[in-house]
Each structure stands twice: as structure tokens, then as C-alpha cells.
Amino acid sequence: MNFLDALTTAFALPFMGRALIVMLVLSVAAGVIGVFINLRGLEFLSDGLTHAVFPGLAAGFVLSGHNGVLIGALIAAAAATIVLTLMSNNKVASDATTAIVLTAMFSIGVIIVSASSGRAGGLEQLLFGHLLTVTDTEAITTVVVSLIALVLVLLTFRRQVFRAFDSVASAAAGYRRVVTELVLNVAIALVIVAASNAVGNLLVLAVLIVPGALSRLVSNRLGGLFVVAISAGLLASWIGLAAGFSISVNGGVDVPGGATVALTFIALYAIALIVRVIRKGANA
């Protein structure tokens, strides 16, 4: 099956359809939240949360397989989000201490998985996901977690915009800063949990950060950012899954769907960057 056929017919297969639905919902949530990550400059915190979630994923997986991953990740995410929000609010955390703590968390996760011999291939699945072999239960929980994250941000949309633009004036207007920040950080953590399940813990950042960064290259208007970020996510999910499928079938190699989706995100970003440079050159 060639790539163009894969773009349409491949999704008739149940496992491909399931993967696509998961990715589409995830893309909407990650698109909206990714714009706020970009506006607030929270890429490093997101990276940190991703690492912090890993031991939770690992412990959940070791204790009860794929169904335990979500619970473990949620517990780790909750703890890490609260600690990081409080630390950043009280200004006790430097980037260096954050990096040290979170790398430690990641190492602990790797050791937990490696130490349990009974789960062959577990580490690889946690790191790179198993998008094409998600079960119905996993698909539903991923979708639900993504939607909760999306609703959290939509309910606090105005104060998130205000906080991102002008933190002091938003506090003056009566929006408590710690509440605004905690809600966004929880939403980021939830998307990380959902995306870890789908594309794997190492590739989460592609889904979470690239659409927001890309939207800044393309649009100068607030509304435009969200439209571009969500559209880019939807497009990258579709093309990436089809590409992964096509390579696996034709090449006879087992390519993780998460990796091709992540690479498609990067490719879209590169295209946007090139177009912007050319347009700027044309204007100059």
C-alpha cells in the first residue's frame, strides 16, 4: 500500500482508526495548551513534568501492566505539578535544581522498569509509546484525560490569557496567580499523561510544544494561534500515522507510530520556519 492510499484507506483498519481518534483528540487539547506553554515560556517546566511523570508510568506498568500506567502517571503528575507550582511561586527553584530533581526522577523510572524482568519490551513502550496497539480501554482513558485538560484551560481561558500577557495586572484584577498557574500546570500534566500513553514519554514534547511554537511563526493574532496550533496537530497526526503505516507495510519494519507522528510535527515546523524566513526576506 503506497503512502497516498494509506492516507485514506488505512484508517478503515480498527487499530489505525483507534490511533487516529486518540491523536486527533490529543491534538486539540495539546494545541490549545501548547499555545499557552509558548506564550508563558513554560517549555522547560513541561520538559520537567514529562520527566517527573516517568517513574509513575514505570511503577504503574510494573505493578499492573498497561492499565496501571495511567494511574501511576496521574499520581506522579499530581505530586510533581503541586511541587513545581509551589516552588516557582515561592521562587525557591532555580532551573538547575529543577533539572537535577527531574533527571533523578527519570533515572528512577528507568531503574524501576529495568529491574522488573517480567515485562519484556516495557521500557521501549513507555519511552516510544505503542500507538498502533492501544486497547479500547487505553484509547478511551487517553481521550478522557485529554478532554479534562482541555476543559480546565477553556474554563480559565481569559485569566490564562491575562496572566500570560501581564501577570501583575491580572493579579490586580483579582485573579489569584497561584490558582491560574496551578490550573494550567495541571492541564499540562494531564496532556503529558495522555500523550505518554499514546506517543510515549520521550516524544510527548513534540506533540505538546511544537504546535504552539509553530503557531507563533505563522500568526500574529491570538485567535490565529489556536487555529494554527490545532490544525497543525490534526494534520501531523493524520500524515504521521499514514506514513508510519505505509513504511511498516512496505518496508516490513516495525516503526512506532508515535515516532512518525513526532517527525511530521517537526517537518511542519521546519516548513513554517522556511516560509517565514522567505516571507521576511521578500518583505525586506
Partner: peptide
């Protein structure tokens, strides 16, 4: 209810994608 506040020198991101109108609308959010 919120307090009106005019900061002295605001350290805002000059690239932040909001129009003047959107900034003034922030005063209505509450």
C-alpha cells in the same frame, strides 16, 4: 471586584500577539 492598576514600566513581551483592543478588553474580564 478588582483594582484598576496602571503600572510604571511594564515588562511585557513586545511580540505578544494581542491587539490594543484585546488588551483593553482584559479590563472587562472580571
Amino acid at each position: 471586584t478588582g483594582i484598576g492598576y496602571l503600572p510604571q514600566t511594564e515588562h511585557i513581551d513586545p511580540e505578544f500577539p494581542v491587539s490594543l483592543k484585546q488588551v483593553v478588553m482584559m479590563g472587562r474580564y472580571r
